[in-house]
């Protein structure tokens, strides 16, 4: 591999930063960037998957201590994501490369479209909590720094959230990404959690999900330590910076920021998948 160490670190810093800001993990930037530099997509996915552990751990540690993360919601749903990630990674091992590019692009654009449609709508607390979600003790409150007040909330529809999280885990394992946008969407739309709780709880379970995917890629020899070292160093630096910033800014600003990045990367991957320029 002839890609310079410095370039890999730089790209990974950008990836880590965007990953933390959006709650998506650094993979959405890393996989397109690495393949663009000539890394095989399966290697790129495997390296991205292990770097996602680093991003998630780094950001989650700050959020968890700020008590925004809902640990119970996270631990219930990661049962579904880890199984999904194992299945997804196993599919990637045997899948042809061109469809991987296409799926990657489509997933990015789908995340983008959903977030765009949702934009501007403020979060409203759920009035009625179903019996299953109550049984799971899905409720909480946190102090919102930007709004200057305590927000209380109750989670709903956990029976839909679980199976959907299997899908999010599958996507994560398949593409080597955190699939944070999908997870955030499930928390937001299906389970009625406030955006900040969604983003931070998603970050927590991304780490474990990525670990399940990593163990599959690891055994297949797709993890090249020469690439992993600079990528992890860069991603952690970027994630740390992004996390510090996220706690201080409003919900809308977070959304608008990553909408543009996702759209461009998604389109690029689809074009490469279609034209075969991989």
């Amino acid at each position: 591999m002839t890609i310079s160490f410095e370039l890999l670190v730089l790209i990974s810093i950008v990836g880590g930063f965007i990953g933390a800001m959006s709650g998506m993990g650094g993979g959405v930037v890393l996989v397109p960037a690495l393949t663009f530099l000539g890394v095989d997509i399966k290697n790129a996915i495997a390296i991205s998957m292990i770097s996602v552990i680093a991003t998630s751990n780094g950001s989650a540690s700050a959020y968890v201590r700020d008590r925004i993360t809902n640990l119970k919601a996270g631990m219930f749903l990661e049962m579904f994501t880890i199984v999904g990630a194992t299945v997804g990674a196993s599919i990637t091992l045997v899948a042809p490369r061109q469809p991987l590019f296409l799926i990657f692009g489509i997933v990015l654009l789908a995340s983008w479209a959903t977030l765009l449609l949702e934009k501007g709508e403020g979060w409203k607390p759920a009035v009625h909590q179903d019996a299953f979600s109550r049984w799971l003790e899905l409720k909480g409150s946190y102090y919102d720094q930007a709004a200057g007040q305590t927000v209380s909330y109750r989670g709903i529809r956990a029976y839909i959230g679980g199976p959907l999280m299997f899908g999010a885990g599958l996507t994560a394992g398949l593409l080597g990404i955190g699939a944070g946008a999908l997870k955030v969407m499930i928390f937001d739309l299906a389970m009625g959690l406030p955006p900040k709780v969604s983003t931070t709880t998603s970050n927590l379970i991304i780490g474990v999900t990525a670990l399940a995917g990593t163990s599959v890629y690891f055994a297949s020899g797709l993890i090249d330590p020469g690439l992993v070292a600079p990528v992890i160093l860069g991603v952690v630096i970027g994630a740390f910076a992004g996390t510090r910033l996220l706690v201080r800014i409003s919900n809308v600003a977070v959304r608008i920021f990553f909408l543009f990045v996702i759209a461009a990367l998604g389109a690029e991957m689809i074009i490469r998948g279609l034209t075969g320029l991989i």
Binding site: S4, F5, A54, T214, F218, L227, A229
Partner: peptide, 30 residues
Amino acid sequence: SIILIAAGVAWYRLQTGRLTLEYQISDTNL
């Protein structure tokens, strides 16, 4: 983990003058 990786890279740099480690991890589970 960052300290260990950074130290490994720095040591390799001192030893060989290069930053990118060249070795493989294969045929092993975690």
